[in-house]
């Protein structure tokens, strides 16, 4: 179970409070969506959960299976099963995509006391997942995300998720920059990964992504707080009426 307890977060660089007391409990197998207007703190929440530097926790806790992860480095959180699919996946020239994914997978296996995969074992698993997600193997031979289209970058994120098999996945505006077909493909990958042991936190501006990935709960976030929680119908309400009536 993943739990956020009375979380208050400042961004150190600008000394500004962005999150002002969030409480959220996500059980295994559940899909939660967070929607909210620009500047409500959604991306700050995703970076804070995954341990990015510069996000200062003033108060509160983040727990995975009852244990605080606040002292864990980003790589330790990842190895414990937290995965952030980036809104804008980073391009890193000079780092090979395949080498990166294999290093990530083996680092996590090492952390969890498992044997590292040799190149042949890794490639076998990679091919299976890449085929299913319609990811071109040639694309994977290129430097990490360099020259990838928006759709390719997002599919690469989902491929990494499929290979790393996290327990808790955060999708930060995965639908941004995607056309309808690309969104369907990415959603297909996410739905394939849904299981009773894996939970999701989907951050989005729009209801349309939730047509393809059906959430169990929808939360509306504004001014660093969750102001309303409901079922999938809440996303439709936002789609039809916007946020204004909820904020007043």
């Amino acid at each position: 179970m993943f739990e956020i307890k009375d979380l208050h977060v400042n961004i150190s660089e600008v000394e500004k409070k962005i999150i002002s007391g969030i409480n959220l409990k996500i059980n295994p197998g559940e899909v939660h969506a967070i929607m909210g207007p620009n500047g409500s703190g959604k991306s700050t929440l995703s970076y804070t959960l995954s341990g990015k530097e510069g996000y200062e926790i003033e108060k509160g806790d983040i727990e995975l299976d009852g244990e605080s992860i606040l002292d864990d480095e980003p790589d330790e959180r990842a190895a414990k099963g937290i995965f952030l699919a980036f809104q804008y996946p980073i391009e890193i020239p000079g780092v090979g995509n395949l080498s990166f994914i294999r290093t990530a997978l083996n680092s996590q296996r090492k952390f969890n006391g498992k044997d590292e995969l040799n190149p042949a074992e890794f490639l076998k698993i990679l091919r299976e997942k890449a085929d299913f997600l319609n990811v071109d193997m040639e694309m994977l031979k290129r430097p990490l995300n360099v020259g990838f289209s928006g759709g390719e970058k997002k599919r690469n994120e989902i491929l990494q998720m499929a290979l790393l098999e996290p327990r808790f996945c955060i999708l930060d505006e995965t639908d941004s920059g995607l056309d309808v077909d690309a969104m369907k493909q990415v959603s297909k990958g996410v739905n394939f990964l849904r299981s009773e042991n894996r939970s999701f936190l989907i951050i989005t501006h729009y209801q349309r992504l939730l047509n393809y990935i059906k959430p169990d709960f929808v939360h509306i976030m504004a001014k660093g707080k969750i102001i309303k929680t409901g079922g999938p119908e809440l996303a439709l309400e936002v789609e039809n009426q916007g946020y204004t009536h909820l904020l007043n």
Partner: peptide, 9 residues
């Protein structure tokens, strides 16, 4: 951060 968010120390 991107590399570390995937578990790379």
């Amino acid at each position: 951060f991107y590399l570390r968010s995937r578990g790379i120390p």
